[in-house]
Design a protein around this nucleic acid. Structure first.
Length: 556
RNA sequence: GGGGGCGUAGCUCAGUUUGGUUAGAGCACUCGACUGUCACUCGAGAGGUCGCGGGUUCGAGCCCCGUCGCUCCCGCCA
């Protein structure tokens, strides 16, 4: 009789036989249930050639067992850990509920081992370069802007609250003011926002900050760190990543984190369309919009329905519609065709079999629409190389984004980011035109992380707050006084970056979800099914915190 | 906050279209046989709040209303 023995390193077959196993041990072996924990001794022997299992890594040996103890008998598992060929995984809800079993699966074990290795590489890499691993508080001060905070009531101070950190941003800047000129932390961050497959309420980032650095220094450091992480996972990637300004990314890809594994660039056809007497394009151009679009090779054969699906995507992203024109057998075809001038035809430069998809609108509607259409077309044209790893820096983000209705400014990165000094000089009264010294690192259309050079002049920082609507000195001091005091007490120029560690592990593990690289993740409802959190607490506990619950069902 | 999908045995699923006998299969489990297996094989058995609540109906796994959970997406995520 045989038992598959599994540990962290793999499987080996235990063999029990009358020739080498005592009768009582044979009987005990027969009673071992699956997933039980055993201690055994025996002789590791080569299997006879006709008994080798070529599908098993250790299939040419077996342990001929002479002694056996069942040290951790297991009840029948709620879900199967060892699956037969072709057997499906249990539903994720079940696997999360019985995480102690699911984590026994070799796939998840490998993911967490990889996570460990990447953590160690990060620490060694940064420590070797003089970066100090410094810790920051988990109980911090609530920040009203940005994501919603997880709040923690104070027992000692009834009615007052801590917040869990959304990021260690201000603390790491204060470290710079303290003279810890190179800092890093594998930092846990918390955001009380709705979740996605690639978004958990608590997540881990590799957080880095350095003094007396410029953007170039941080980009180089991050490239080397990412290179070390990818190398640990078996990938050699370029030492330096291509760079693209935010303006170019938005112009050519309609997106600030473009997937550049394929081209399909967005082009501007506004000029030739200026003389086209077609209502839709005329109205958009007159309203200050543009006519931009993508030329798709060999897509003229797509059906009306297929293009309508693309139009639905564009509409979902805010466009009023998707204009289409195709070139078939030397002729132009589509609702636009009869309006086309020679100038437009020359600009589009359609070859036979090409399809052009255009959006006539203001950029803020056209960009997201063309971005989605471009991505879907690349998928349909099979242009996406799954094996390619196209890293990209996107930089020169705008400092602020302006609310289309109210005109209010909001920080694109965060309020502590420095603006381009040249922009502040050139357009002192037009902050909406300022570019930030901020940068994102993007892989295949996914943001891996981002950072910025920070404002180290307290007067400039104070002005940034004012531009963001925090004008009163009292309010600035109340909310960000601890940062402003730090800056006033002598602050070096500094900047940094944060990389989304869970997402990096997910990508390198080839996992479909963040939940597969976090030992005890939350569901999309921010619930932990394993230990069952959150839960109601007894009224006596609330009393001690000075809290009263509103009757359930009552909405503020 | 909004939209889509899913929820039937411990697990994976069929059954829901068109309401109708006692709700089925494979795996797992228990007992027995076999004993060089490695998705063992063979025989027998046990196992069900059809997510939950309400409604329609002579009759509901199936239709209607509500609700809970999981999941994907939009909003949101300085």
């Amino acid at each position: 009789m045989f038992i598959d023995l599994r540990d962290r390193t793999g499987l080996v077959q235990l063999a029990f036989g009358p020739g080498w196993t005592a009768a009582d041990v044979l009987a005990l072996a027969a009673s071992v249930g699956v997933e039980s924990v055993v201690l055994c001794e025996g002789e590791l022997v080569a299997r006879a050639p006709d008994r080798v299992n070529p599908e098993m890594l250790t299939g040419d040996v077996e342990l001929q067992v002479t002694s056996l103890r069942i040290v951790g008998p297991a009840v029948t598992p709620a879900l199967q850990v060892a699956r037969g060929r072709g057997e499906k995984l249990a539903a994720e809800e079940l696997r999360l509920r019985h995480r102690y079993l699911d984590l026994r699966r070799p796939e998840l074990q490998e993911n967490l081992v990889l996570r460990h290795r990447l953590l160690q590489v990060s620490r060694r890499f940064l420590s070797d370069r003089g970066y100090l691993e410094l810790e920051t508080p988990i109980l911090t001060k609530p920040t009203p802007e940005g994501a919603r905070d997880y709040l923690v009531p104070s027992r000692v101070h009834p009615g007052e609250f801590y917040a869990l950190p959304q990021s260690p941003q201000i603390y790491k800047q204060l470290f710079m003011c303290c003279g810890f000129d190179r800092y890093f932390q594998i930092a846990r961050c918390f955001r009380d926002e709705d979740l996605r497959a690639d978004r958990q309420p608590e997540f881990t980032q590799i957080d880095v900050e350095a003094s007396f650095v410029e953007q170039e220094d941080i980009l180089r450091l991050a490239e080397a760190l990412v290179g070390a992480l990818w190398k640990e996972a078996g990938h050699d990637i370029p030492a330096q990543f291509p760079r693209m300004t935010y303006a170019e990314a938005m112009e050519t890809y309609g997106c600030d984190r473009p997937d550049v594994r394929y081209a399909l660039p967005i082009r501007d056809y506004s000029a030739p369309f200026g003389s086209v007497d077609f209502g839709v394009t005329r109205a958009a151009l007159d309203a200050g919009g543009r006519v931009r679009g993508i030329v798709l090779p060999n897509a003229a054969s797509w059906s009306r329905k297929q293009v309508d699906e693309l139009e639905a995507l564009a509409k979902g992203a805010g466009a009023a519609g998707l204009l289409r024109v195709r070139h078939v057998d030397g002729a132009y075809d589509g609702p636009l065709a009869k309006f086309l001038t020679d100038d437009v035809r020359a600009a589009l430069a359609l070859r036979d079999g090409d399809l052009a998809l255009l959006v006539a609108a203001a950029d803020r509607f056209a960009n997201p629409a063309l971005d989605r259409v471009r991505q879907e077309c690349a998928r349909r044209l099979d242009l996406v190389d799954d094996k390619a790893q196209q890293f990209l820096w996107v930089f020169d983000f705008p400092m602020f984004e302006q609310d289309a209705v109210t005109g209010a400014l909001a920080a694109v990165h965060h309020p502590f980011t420095a603006s381009h000094p040249a922009d502040m000089l050139a357009y002192p009264d037009e902050p909406a035109r300022w570019r930030a010294l901020a940068y994102d690192v993007v892989l295949n259309g996914t943001e891996l992380g981002g950072g910025s050079i920070r404002t180290s002049d307290p007067a400039v920082q104070s002005r940034m707050f004012a531009l963001l609507g925090i004008g009163e000195t009292d309010e600035q001091e109340r909310r960000f006084g601890f940062l402003l005091e730090g800056l006033r007490s002598g602050a070096p120029p500094h900047g940094g970056i944060a990389l989304g560690f869970d997402r990096i592990v997910m990508l390198l593990a080839g996992a479909p979800s963040l939940r597969d690289v976090i030992a005890f993740p939350k569901t999309t409802a921010a619930r932990s099914l394993f230990e069952g959190a959150p839960v109601p607490v007894p009224t006596t506990d609330l009393d001690e915190l000075g809290l009263t619950l509103r009757a359930s069902g009552v909405i503020a």
